[in-house]
Computed example of a mutant assay.
Amino acid sequence: MCATCRTKRSSRRPRSCSPGRRRHEVPHTVADELGTTPARVAIAWTMSRSPLVHPIIGARTSDQLRDDLAAVDLTLPPEIVARLTRAAEFTPGFPSDFIAETSPWVFGSALPAPPRDSPVVGHR
C-alpha cells in the first residue's frame, strides 16, 4: 500500500505514484527491505528527525490507523534515515531563496548571524 496515496502498489498507479518519482519510491524500497509498510517507514522517519516532531497521520480506516500507530515500534537504522533524508531534500524556491539572498542587502549589519547549523536556505 502506498503511504502517500493509500493505493495498492500495482501497474495501475495514479500519476502521482509513477515509479520515476524518487521521493515516492524510496520509502517503498526501504519498506520492502525492512519487511514493513511505507506508511510505517514514513512516520518513523519523520519521528526520527526530532523528538519535537509529532507526525499527523491521515488514517481513514481502523486498519490504516493500526498500521500508522505501529510506526512507534519501528527503529530505523542510521543509514536508512540518511537515505530517506537525501531523497526528501528539496529547494524551497521563491520566496525563501529571494529572502535569503536579499536579507543582507536590506538589513545590512542589523541582520543577526544565523547559527552555524542553520537549516535556513541561503544561510551559511
Rank of each mutant, 00 (worst) to 15 (best):
V53D: 10
G93P: 09
I43G: 05
V72W: 11
A71R: 03
Q64H: 07
R60M: 07
I43V: 10
A88L: 02
R83G: 05
E89C: 09
A70K: 01
A71D: 00
I99R: 11
L52Q: 11
P95N: 10
V81P: 02
A87P: 01
R49Y: 04
G58M: 02
M47T: 12
L76I: 03
I57H: 02
L84H: 10
A82I: 01
A88R: 03
A44G: 06
P104I: 03
W45A: 01
I80F: 07
P51V: 00
A100Q: 07
E89R: 15
Q64C: 05
T61G: 04
D68C: 04
R66S: 11
F107E: 10
T85G: 09
A59H: 13
A70E: 11
T46F: 06
G108Q: 04
A82E: 13
R83K: 11
A70D: 09
A42F: 02
F94S: 02
L84R: 06
T46D: 04
T46E: 05
P55M: 06
T91S: 15
E79P: 01
D73V: 00
T102I: 15
V106W: 07
M47H: 05
E101M: 15
A82W: 03
T91H: 14
I57C: 06
P92M: 08
S96L: 08
S50D: 14
A87Q: 09
H54W: 01
S48V: 09
D97W: 03
R60Q: 12
L52I: 00
S48F: 06
T102H: 15
T91M: 14
D63V: 13
H54L: 08
I80K: 08
L69P: 09
T85C: 04
A59G: 14
F90T: 12
A88W: 03
H54C: 06
I56L: 15
V106S: 06
G108L: 02
A71P: 00
A110W: 03
P95F: 08
D63Y: 01
G108E: 04
S103W: 09
V53K: 09
P95V: 08
R60G: 14
Q64P: 04
R83E: 09
V72D: 07
Q64Y: 05
F94H: 07
P55Q: 05
E101P: 07
D97V: 10
D63M: 10
E101R: 15
L65K: 10
G93E: 09
A59Y: 14
A82P: 00
S50F: 01
F94R: 00
P104N: 06
R66T: 05
T91D: 15
T46M: 13
Q64L: 09
L74Q: 02
P51D: 01
A59E: 05
S48L: 08
L52D: 14
A87S: 15
E89T: 14
V72Y: 13
T75K: 10
A59F: 13
I56S: 06
R86G: 07
A110H: 07
G93N: 08
G108T: 06
P78N: 04
H54Q: 11
T46W: 04
W105L: 15
D63L: 15
